[in-house]
Design a protein around this nucleic acid. Structure first.
Lengths: 111, 111
DNA sequence: TAAACTGGTCTGTAGCGCAAACTCCTCACA
DNA sequence: TGTGAGGAGTTTGCGCTACAGACCAGTTTA
């Protein structure tokens, strides 16, 4: 093996798939990020019903995205009741963009 | 609910994401299916190196795909050595097609 | 015959996704 | 002024899963 078997020119679709960001790859988080990418900010309650998730599930996924630096959390009060809002970060947008790009590379009619 | 709030025209991208087939969604299996979709048949040894997987990992993913009816396994002998070959089934092709379709629906420039 | 290799399956474990239980707070009511 | 109901999230517990290493069957080489 000397001439052309390492990944020289064409990015391997297989590698694109295997290199997918697992934080983004989880459907719930992908939906969450996509939603946040389209809106400035979204509240916990809204996301809960929009995604049809249990509170616990949403909370843990959000925490994971926050740990990854993909979203920001803002805690405020509305009329004495706590309200938690989420916003996508630049890193989050970049990760989401990279994710879709990788998928496009691996898709049937991809490149 | 009487007029127009259930999913009338535009299929919700969020639902498309949340409804993804988890069997296909796993990157390793997605890569595996994609590879098999492009080739008639592939052998264990080839897949192992093509995907860069451990034997155990490949074996278990293949078993899962077989359980789902997405691939077929053929065991033969080549010069007295056992050879295991995999082939995608019609159901596998359908699942893969449906998966990409769902993703396209949810992608940024999707519909 | 023993040793090493090929081809693959089985077992053990860390991590993850999910929902139920729990906490903290506010508001209605007696 | 207690007391209970309910909103807003977080923490805990559990079952499943992806992954790798140990293991096994058979073959070839020394």
């Amino acid at each position: 093996m000397s001439v052309g078997d390492p990944p020289p020119g064409p990015p391997d679709p297989v590698q694109a798939l295997l290199g997918l960001d697992r934080v983004v790859h989880e459907p719930v988080r992908l939906a969450l990020l996509s939603l946040l990418a389209g809106a400035q900010e979204a509240e916990f309650k809204f996301l809960e019903s929009a995604l049809g998730l249990s509170k616990g599930n949403l909370s843990s996924h959000a925490a994971r995205l926050e740990d990854a630096g993909y979203i920001e959390v803002r805690k405020t009060f509305r009329r004495k009741l706590p309200v938690t809002s989420y916003r996508i970060t630049d890193a989050g947008r970049a990760a989401l963009g990279g994710y879709w790009a990788a998928l496009r590379e691996a898709a049937p009619g991809g490149s």
